[in-house]
């Protein structure tokens, strides 16, 4: 069991967890991920590591509640535990001195890109971070990113923070100015695909972190297979980072939709349970109200 030792709401629907997992904390490298299973009936879900503290024996994950498991996880608090966490899995990010490295991230992807940005900085790169989100309340770890970057640009779709626009707008400007030697893009598939398009004409080395559906995370099942340079690669052991110019994003999107119906059903079930809980709470209040009426006393 893996106890949650600290939590922090970092944006709307996005929560940061520090979890006791000494073995993983000791070995974690930027770019790697863990697979969690909440309880005996839970599914296995891959989550990128945002940080680790080997001395304290803790790992940090930042979770956006989008499926049943992540929604449930985000309801847990300090004192709760997660049944299973395994890792660190996948290959660490490639860290070397590229010159100027641009780290582009969207929403919760920022938490995953952050440790790599920090390492790139340590390796001597000039690090430029481009942080995007739909709106201000979905921006995460902006301060942390600023601390490890030489320059940081914030963009939101609605202009509620930073510049209005997509991250690719800023990336295009930097590329056009001839300033970029290396790009890492972490975020939703359309964003990563768009970044790859921006850097392709000048053949700037661009890596993307792929969020395939996984089960075991050790190469055993092949469920996370992606088409890279027209050959099958397993995101769990060959990735999760791949050269963006070689990735077939269409296949990635198609495969990530494989369980859309079931995912919907699971969320509906969870929400229905919440509705039952609310109904139960209301019935209970009603009982108290009735009892108060019968007793003829005012109940606060």
């Amino acid at each position: 069991m893996f106890p949650i030792v600290a939590t922090r709401q970092v944006a709307r629907g996005i929560k940061l967890f520090e979890i006791k997992a000494p073995r993983i904390a000791k070995k974690q490298r930027p770019g790697q991920f863990v697979i969690i299973r909440l309880d005996d009936t839970g599914e296995r879900v891959p989550l990128t590591l945002a940080d680790a503290n080997p001395e304290a024996g803790t790992i940090t994950i930042v979770v956006q509640g989008i499926g049943k498991t992540t929604m449930l996880l985000n309801m847990l608090e300090v004192g709760d535990s997660i049944l299973d966490i395994v890792g660190p899995l996948g290959k660490p990010s490639e860290i070397e001195n590229f010159g100027t490295a641009v780290v582009v991230s969207g929403s919760v992807g920022t938490a995953m890109a952050y440790p790599t940005a920090r390492e790139l900085k340590r390796a001597g790169n000039k690090v430029i971070s481009i942080v995007g989100a739909r709106s201000k309340d979905l921006l995460v770890l902006e301060d942390e990113v600023r601390e490890v970057s030489d320059e940081t640009y914030v963009l939101t779709d609605d202009g509620s923070a930073g510049e209005q626009g997509l991250v690719t707008k800023k990336l295009q400007e930097l590329v056009d100015a001839g300033l970029v030697n290396y790009v890492l893009a972490v975020g939703p598939v359309p964003m990563m695909r768009a970044c790859a398009k921006v850097t392709e004409p000048q053949k700037i080395k661009t890596m993307v972190s792929l969020n395939s559906i996984m089960v075991d995370g050790t190469g055993m099942c092949g469920g996370c297979r992606v088409l890279v340079n027209n050959s099958s690669q397993f995101a769990c052991v060959d990735g999760p980072e791949f050269d963006a110019s070689q990735v077939n994003f269409d296949v990635l999107t198609q495969r990530n939709n494989m369980y859309r119906e079931q995912e919907k059903q699971s969320i509906e079930q969870l929400l229905a349970q919440a509705e039952v809980a609310v109904a139960k709470q209301r019935a209970n209040i009603h009982k108290h109200e009735c009892a108060a009426l019968t007793a003829g006393v005012a109940h606060e």
């Binding site: 049943k68 369980y259 699971s266």
Partner: peptide
């Protein structure tokens, strides 16, 4: 499924 969370292609 859905008693257990892991989905399977139908």
């Amino acid at each position: 499924f859905p008693e257990f969370d892991e989905p399977l292609y139908p």
